[in-house]
């Protein structure tokens, strides 16, 4: 039963003993993961963790505040370029460069939030889309940032240690991800998060109860951009080489898709969405080499589409999975989780 026993129950860090257990289990699992799985899967984990950061941040904006953004690849690019540029040009240490780049992205997010005060829905989507497309064009024109040629990441030294392998990098990325996810979760439980949801659900009522729309809308953009910026800075070191082409519209749409598939308006939903979609994105590339299924797909595409077969068949499968998820659970993976939980609570009735 949902009977309240004390005021602090809603405020506690862990809502029950079971949550403490699962959280500890998760931390231990994350700790031993890179020792159990081989290198490629550690690389995958890093990639997934970075996507989680962006999507959790994006969800604060889209899911909680109700403002759409198709320009998050732009903030991601600013973070990536900002980190490398600050390290190579201004000789910042890595962590300082990463955080500064996050703040640069946040300032841009704030500025992009200003037109958002007047725009809504599709109009805001177009404005943010414009930002995302423009920012990579601008970066491509700056020689200091490598222009169209791209930039190589410098050696990664954190607190005096060289991080060379994926496994070492894993122990940098994953703690940052865990911290940022917890930060977002706490934020949504307190004043700022409530103000975001209030703006999404009833803007006028929010305003008349004392929520400053200008401040909170721009704040949502800034926080969300900060998450994307920090993730971008780390992404630069996953790839070790970045160029403007990387941060295209498709990437922005992928971030938004991850948030929607995971479930807007929750913190853990987007985490699940980011995990599922980034994993699918990487794994489906090898779908043709899966025994039986791969052959069947190749046959199918050769028979119905073209003589040589469809080259990017993974996108077709990917799209199919997305459609399937959205039809059966419009609330995304989070909705699926809620339903499962409810089912087991009342089982066997």
């Amino acid at each position: 039963m949902d009977m309240k026993r004390a005021y602090y129950e809603d405020v506690r860090f862990f809502s029950s003993g079971a949550v403490v257990f699962w959280f500890a289990a998760l931390i231990i699992a994350l700790g031993i993961y890179p020792f159990v799985f081989k290198n490629y899967y550690v690389y995958v984990a890093n990639y997934v963790a970075i996507n989680i950061m962006v999507v959790v941040g994006l969800n604060l904006l889209v899911g909680y505040t109700g403002q759409i953004s198709l320009g998050h690849a732009g903030f991601f690019a600013v973070g990536a370029y900002g980190t490398i540029a600050l390290m190579t040009q201004a000789h910042f240490p890595f962590l300082a460069a990463l955080i500064s780049a996050g703040f640069i992205a946040a300032i841009l997010g704030f500025l992009l939030g200003l037109p958002a005060l007047r725009l809504e829905g599709p109009y805001l989507a177009i404005a943010t889309l414009g930002f995302g497309v423009t920012i990579t064009q601008i970066i491509g024109k700056i020689d200091l940032l490598g222009g169209r040629q791209g930039l190589h990441a410098p050696d990664l030294i954190v607190l005096g240690r060289h991080l060379n392998t994926d496994r070492e990098f894993y122990f940098l990325v994953v703690p940052i991800t865990v911290l940022l996810v917890l930060f977002a979760r706490n934020l949504t439980k307190t004043k700022v998060g409530r103000a975001f949801v209030a703006i999404r659900d009833a803007e006028i009522a929010a305003e008349t109860i004392g929520v400053n729309l200008v401040m909170y809308k721009t704040l949502a953009f800034a926080i969300s951009a900060f998450y994307a910026g920090v993730a971008g800075g780390l992404y630069a070191f996953v790839l070790r080489f970045i160029d403007p082409e990387l941060f295209g519209l498709f990437m922005s749409i992928m971030f938004l898709t991850m948030a929607v598939v995971g479930g807007l308006g929750s913190v853990m939903g987007p985490v699940a969405g980011a995990m599922l979609l980034s994993w699918l994105d990487l794994e489906l590339r090898n779908i043709l080499s899966v025994p039986y299924l791969g052959q069947w797909l190749r046959q199918l595409s050769e028979q119905y589409f073209s003589l040589t077969g469809v080259s990017n068949i993974q996108f077709i499968v990917f799209g199919g999975i997305l459609i399937f998820i959205m039809i059966f659970e419009p609330l995304g993976l989070y909705g699926f989780w809620i339903r499962t939980k409810k089912y087991w609570k009342t089982w066997p009735f």
């Binding site: 977002a184 439980k189 307190t190 209030a198 704040l219």
Partner: peptide, 15 residues
């Protein structure tokens, strides 16, 4: 809302 002082940092760090 109007009486509360929790900002982004205090809110996010609600341990």
């Amino acid at each position: 809302h109007r009486f509360m002082k929790t900002g982004v940092f205090h809110g996010g760090l609600m341990w």
